[in-house]
Simulated scan of single mutants.
Amino acid sequence: MNSSSKSTKTWTLLRYAVEINHHSPSSSPNSTSSSERQQPQRQLIDCSEGLLCLTLTPSQQLYVIRDDTEKIECVDLLTTDSSSVMGTYTGDSLLLTYLIPHDNIQRKFLVKFASTATLNARQHCEDCVKLLSHSINITHFDSTSSSSPITTNSIVSIADMIKYLMKENPIQLSSYYNQEVVFNWKETDELLEKYLCDETFPDFVANVASVLETMKDSSK
Rank of each mutant, 00 (worst) to 15 (best):
I150Q: 13
S175N: 14
S148K: 14
I171G: 04
E190N: 09
R42M: 04
Y176E: 06
T90C: 07
S26G: 14
R37T: 15
Q123C: 06
S3P: 04
S82R: 15
K6L: 13
A17T: 14
L132Q: 00
E199D: 15
N137I: 01
L44S: 10
Q179R: 09
S5K: 15
Q123N: 07
N137A: 04
P101H: 10
S143C: 07
E213P: 02
L56A: 03
N184A: 14
I105L: 08
K216F: 03
Q106V: 12
V208P: 02
R122D: 08
K71D: 05
L132H: 01
E49K: 12
T97Y: 02
Q43I: 14
T32Q: 09
T8A: 01
V18M: 04
E187L: 10
Y164I: 02
H134F: 05
D217I: 07
F109R: 01
A209M: 11
N104Y: 14
L54P: 00
A206I: 13
H124P: 01
M166Y: 04
D189A: 08
I72A: 03
D92T: 08
S210G: 05
S143G: 05
S4N: 13
A114I: 03
S174F: 05
C125G: 03
Y89F: 05
A121K: 03
L131M: 09
P25W: 04
T118A: 12
C74N: 10
I171Y: 07
T55G: 00
T139D: 02
P25Y: 05
A114S: 09
K108V: 06
S5W: 13
S24C: 08
Q41S: 15
T12W: 02
T80L: 06
I150P: 07
T79F: 03
N207G: 11
G50D: 04
L191F: 10
S143Q: 05
R66M: 14
T200V: 15
Q123I: 01
S48Y: 05
K71C: 04
R37L: 15
D81I: 10
L95N: 06
N30Y: 12
V75L: 13
T152H: 08
I136P: 00
C128P: 01
P101K: 08
S133H: 03
V85T: 10
L94Y: 00
D46R: 12
N120P: 11
I155G: 00
E126G: 02
S48K: 12
I158V: 10
Q61G: 05
R107G: 02
Y164M: 01
R42W: 00
L131K: 06
N178P: 06
Y16W: 15
H102P: 11
L95I: 10
S218Q: 09
Q41R: 13
L173D: 04
S148E: 14
P58Q: 07
L51Q: 08
I72Y: 01
N120V: 15
S135K: 06
L51K: 09
K163T: 00
N30Q: 12
E19S: 13
L62E: 00
C125D: 02
S148P: 07
D68F: 11
S146C: 13
D198N: 15
F109P: 01
L95R: 06
K130F: 12
D46T: 14
V64G: 00
L99T: 09
I155Y: 01
K6M: 11
K216S: 03
D203I: 06
A17S: 14
V211C: 05
A117V: 13
D81H: 11
M166T: 07
T80P: 02
D46L: 14
C128L: 02
L95Q: 04
D127S: 12
